[in-house]
Simulated assay, not measured.
Amino acid sequence: MQMARSVGLFLVAGMAAGGAHGQGRPDMGKLSATGGVSQLEGAGGGGLVPWALITGYGSRDSWGANLHYTGVRTQDYTLATAGLAVGLADRVELSLARQHFKGSLAPLDRLAIRQDIVGVKVKLAGDAVYGQDVFLPQIAVGALYKRNKGVDGLGTLGVNKVTQLGAKDDSGTDVYVAATKLLLAQSLLLNATVRATRANQMGLLGFGGDKGNAYKAMLEVSAAYMVDRQMVVGVEYRQKPHNLGVDHEKAYDDVFVAWFPSKQVSVTAAYAVLGDITVFNPKRQRGAYLSVQAGF
């Protein structure tokens, strides 16, 4: 109920702010795919990495919004993310997401963890589309506030909080700077993001731990090739901190294909490698990623 009320207030605020910036209705003025897709934490970008692009198709005189649902399945775990995002005047992005992480193999076959994420992103300089004749990429700064909702399925072990697994906190904020360069003549998008974080597995296993509690700067990169107006293929890489002794956390990477049949709908499929998740299932987790986004 609390999440539903937040979503309602978020939509009302986004529409009101969008109207204040310009038209009351979205103009769909941006080029196809230039809002990116919905990243696992709800921000506009690739599947793993937030980009400097602002979500939605509203131009600088309008606004846009989208809903998304993403599912990832590896050998031992599943992760589902659902959320919404609003882009205002192609300058500000607001996002809400809920992640649901579950185990499927003993001894963690009953494991279930939920996390809520509130995000904001602001474009600072450059323009990915109109800045073709300058070296400066589009640059944005963003923050993702995350609150872990606790641990289910480990009651027999007396564990119901991530802090009981070694994390220092059950909430935290990631701060990032993203630079995105779109080379239309070469049909190429390049992105580099630097994130300051204490999150363990994006925050699903809490923040900080017995191996470290300080913010660390992590590099995240993406490269995407636009096959045509409707199809984009690419790769991503995301560094991760290693704060927990029970979690040999490693980098994420993926290979993805994004299909944009219209500005209202996009579908992204990927093969993702998510490294080790916990010492209880000590193998490199890899599997399918599928995301559907609908918006304007």
Score class of each variant (00 low, 15 high):
residue 264 Q to M: 12
residue 274 L to S: 06
residue 11 L to P: 00
residue 71 G to L: 13
residue 139 I to C: 00
residue 1 M to S: 14
residue 85 A to W: 00
residue 52 A to L: 09
residue 8 G to P: 08
residue 272 A to V: 09
residue 160 N to E: 14
residue 53 L to M: 14
residue 172 G to A: 05
residue 29 G to E: 09
residue 29 G to I: 11
residue 196 A to T: 02
residue 71 G to Y: 08
residue 10 F to Q: 02
residue 115 Q to K: 10
residue 93 E to C: 07
residue 198 R to V: 09
residue 46 G to C: 02
residue 198 R to A: 05
residue 85 A to T: 06
residue 38 S to W: 04
residue 210 D to I: 07
residue 122 V to E: 07
residue 149 K to S: 09
residue 74 T to E: 07
residue 159 V to Y: 01
residue 162 V to N: 00
residue 112 A to N: 08
residue 190 L to E: 04
residue 3 M to I: 08
residue 113 I to G: 01
residue 49 V to C: 07
residue 64 G to D: 06
residue 190 L to R: 03
residue 101 F to L: 05
residue 161 K to R: 14
residue 266 S to L: 13
residue 118 V to K: 07
residue 25 R to W: 13
residue 161 K to N: 11
residue 51 W to I: 02
residue 256 F to V: 01
residue 50 P to C: 08
residue 76 D to I: 01
residue 76 D to W: 01
residue 70 T to A: 15
residue 182 L to E: 04
residue 41 E to Y: 05
residue 14 G to W: 08
residue 68 H to L: 05
residue 38 S to H: 05
residue 34 T to Y: 12
residue 54 I to P: 03
residue 31 L to G: 13
residue 151 V to E: 01
residue 233 V to T: 09
residue 15 M to C: 09
residue 219 L to V: 10
residue 105 L to G: 00
residue 92 V to Y: 15
residue 137 P to D: 13
residue 184 L to S: 12
residue 14 G to F: 11
residue 96 L to W: 07
residue 98 R to Y: 11
residue 145 Y to R: 01
residue 222 S to H: 05
residue 92 V to T: 05
residue 210 D to H: 06
residue 50 P to I: 08
residue 254 D to V: 03
residue 127 D to P: 15
residue 219 L to Q: 09
residue 43 A to L: 15
residue 242 H to D: 15
residue 280 F to I: 00
residue 171 S to D: 14
residue 198 R to P: 11
residue 247 D to Y: 11
residue 140 A to E: 08
residue 262 S to V: 09
residue 236 E to I: 07
residue 13 A to D: 03
residue 93 E to V: 08
residue 255 V to R: 06
residue 68 H to A: 09
residue 231 M to P: 04
residue 37 V to D: 00
residue 152 D to T: 01
residue 40 L to Q: 12
residue 185 A to Q: 14
residue 11 L to V: 12
residue 49 V to E: 01
residue 123 K to T: 03
residue 150 G to V: 03
residue 123 K to W: 10
residue 148 N to W: 04
residue 211 K to G: 05
residue 167 A to G: 05
residue 229 R to F: 06
residue 139 I to S: 00
residue 261 P to F: 07
residue 156 T to P: 03
residue 121 K to Y: 13
residue 55 T to W: 01
residue 5 R to C: 12
residue 139 I to V: 15
residue 206 G to K: 04
residue 15 M to Q: 11
residue 121 K to I: 11
residue 280 F to R: 00
